[in-house]
């Protein structure tokens, strides 16, 4: 990591014993010697996937509707100038690299945190431009706030300019849940898409064979 601060702190004597203790704890927590994930492993850190949101075709969608599939949760908004289009294009590219039959076990939930501007039609049109496995979802602000809080994230609105436009701050990471809706990984676009595809393939394989669903 080229970050001078983190390098300096790593070298500092203050942190070294603590780091060792944390490392030992982390090692002792792994009961099975499994290969590490490429994305950040956050299993057990957050609650299982659960939501009730409105799809762009007017249906009410819950987490149970896609039970058995590997699900990715991403918060954004369609007027987003950078993070959202980049991330959705990245997810499309990663999914394309997952072998064909497994690809269908993968779903992306794009949750718009800007329900005032993102009408169902706009949302549907937006997500379909990236990948057919992306589902555009939204709800009222209170419901969205509850869901965001559940995954320790938030969003906020900037000041409205003369054209009625405003910026929205939101999470730039993708939460990945396994076939049983348990939190597994936190994916960010700085990870090469091939590595993301490897993780997704592994999760999709596990979701496909119910006996080894625990992996």
């Amino acid at each position: 990591m080229p970050n001078p601060l983190s390098l300096r702190i790593t070298r500092s004597v203050t942190v070294r014993p603590l780091l060792l203790a944390v490392l030992m704890l982390a090692l002792s927590a792994c009961s099975e010697p499994e290969a590490p994930w490429h994305a950040k492993d956050i299993s057990g850190v957050m609650p299982d996937l659960s939501f009730t949101l409105n799809a762009s075709d007017g249906r009410t969608v819950t987490a149970a509707d896609y039970e058995g599939d590997v699900r990715m949760l991403f918060f954004g908004y369609t007027s987003c100038p950078d993070a959202c289009p980049t991330t959705l294009a990245y997810l499309h590219s990663a999914i394309q690299q997952v072998p064909e039959p497994l690809r269908d076990r993968i779903r992306v939930m794009f949750v718009s945190v800007d329900p005032r501007r993102d009408t169902p039609e706009k949302l549907a049109q937006y997500v379909s431009a990236f990948d057919s496995r992306i589902i555009g979802l939204t709800s009222d602000e209170a419901t969205l706030r509850d869901l965001a809080k559940r995954y320790r994230t938030t969003f906020g609105y900037g000041e409205v300019n003369a054209d009625g436009q405003y910026k929205v701050s939101h999470s730039n990471a993708v939460y990945i849940f396994d076939g049983q809706g348990r939190i597994k990984l936190l994916l960010r676009t700085d990870l090469p898409a091939e590595d993301a595809a490897r993780d997704l393939t592994r999760l999709a394989k596990a979701a496909n064979s119910p006996t080894s669903g625990s992996s």
């Binding site: 938030t154 906020g156 936190l186």
Partner: peptide
């Protein structure tokens, strides 16, 4: 050490704590 740490965060050119990008900020600052 607190002065050194504080100053190195203040003058860091790149983002040191990207978790606030991951979790989203309370407003678009």
């Amino acid at each position: 050490p607190q002065i050194i740490l504080g100053a190195s965060i203040t003058f860091a050119r790149q983002s040191v704590y990207d978790v606030y990008e991951v979790c989203g900020r309370a407003w678009p600052m």
